[in-house]
């Protein structure tokens, strides 16, 4: 049976309640925007397949509830994530300050080599801005994380944010693959089973196959 994708990346969106995680995901998956705010309950996900350097990459993006009361549900999903988007609201100082807490959360719960990215959302609301772009960039430099300002409403940088993160994950993965498989004979075009980092047990099957 032909596989419908070459890679499957699990991404996670985290950040304070109301910063626009669902809107960003909605924009990315449906290319639409809904002004009304409906807070996410628990967790939800969307899937979108993108084309990256000729490879079909399936992105399973988990959208978490920002509200504190769902924290236990959402942290369970950190573990399996390969990329995490930290979202804050440029019109909300508090949400920006909380990014540090969210990073600590990641450090505690996610795998160490997870790719991260900081998104300053709602950059269309220039008049209400509380957090300057420079501060965002500074924070990103501090943690050595990529940073981009987005607007789900105006569809600004949402695509490129996901593409950048996906590309980084892919690069990291291919690098690891090459490192673990110096022969490099069978890189690329492989399914997730060739992804040994997440499934140590799959080494067995790989060995027997060879």
């Amino acid at each position: 049976m032909a596989k419908t994708y070459d890679y499957l990346f699990k991404l996670l969106l985290i950040g304070d309640s109301g910063v626009g995680k669902t809107s960003i995901l909605f924009r990315f998956s449906e290319d639409a925007f809904n002004i009304s705010f409906i807070s996410t309950i628990g967790i939800d996900f969307k899937i979108r397949t993108i084309d990256l350097d000729g490879k079909k990459v399936k992105l399973q993006i988990w959208d978490t509830a920002g509200q504190e009361r769902f924290r236990t549900i959402t942290t369970a999903y950190y573990r399996g994530s390969m990329g995490i988007m930290l979202v804050y609201d440029v019109t909300n100082e508090k949400s920006f300050e909380n990014i540090k807490n969210w990073i600590r959360n990641i450090e505690e719960n996610a795998s160490a080599d997870v790719e991260k990215m900081i998104l300053g959302n709602k950059c269309d609301l220039e008049a209400k801005r509380q957090v300057s772009k420079e501060r965002g960039e500074q924070l990103a430099v501090e943690y050595q994380i990529k940073f981009i300002e987005t607007s789900a409403k105006d569809s600004l940088n949402v695509e490129s944010a996901f593409y950048t993160l996906a590309r980084d994950i892919k690069a990291k993965m291919e690098k690891k693959q090459e490192a673990s498989n110096p022969a490099g004979a069978r890189t690329g075009g492989h399914q997730l089973r060739n992804e040994p980092q997440r499934k140590p047990t799959s080494w067995l099957s790989r060995c027997s196959l060879l």
Binding site: I47, Q60, Q191, R193, R198, K199, S205, S208
Partner: peptide, 22 residues
């Protein structure tokens, strides 16, 4: 369906992983 579309069975797997698929 979306989850099952993510299915990635290796139908020629010799030895099971001992773990459920992710």
């Amino acid at each position: 369906d979306e989850f099952l579309d993510l299915e990635n069975y290796d139908w020629l797997l010799v030895e099971p992983t001992g773990q459920a698929s992710s």
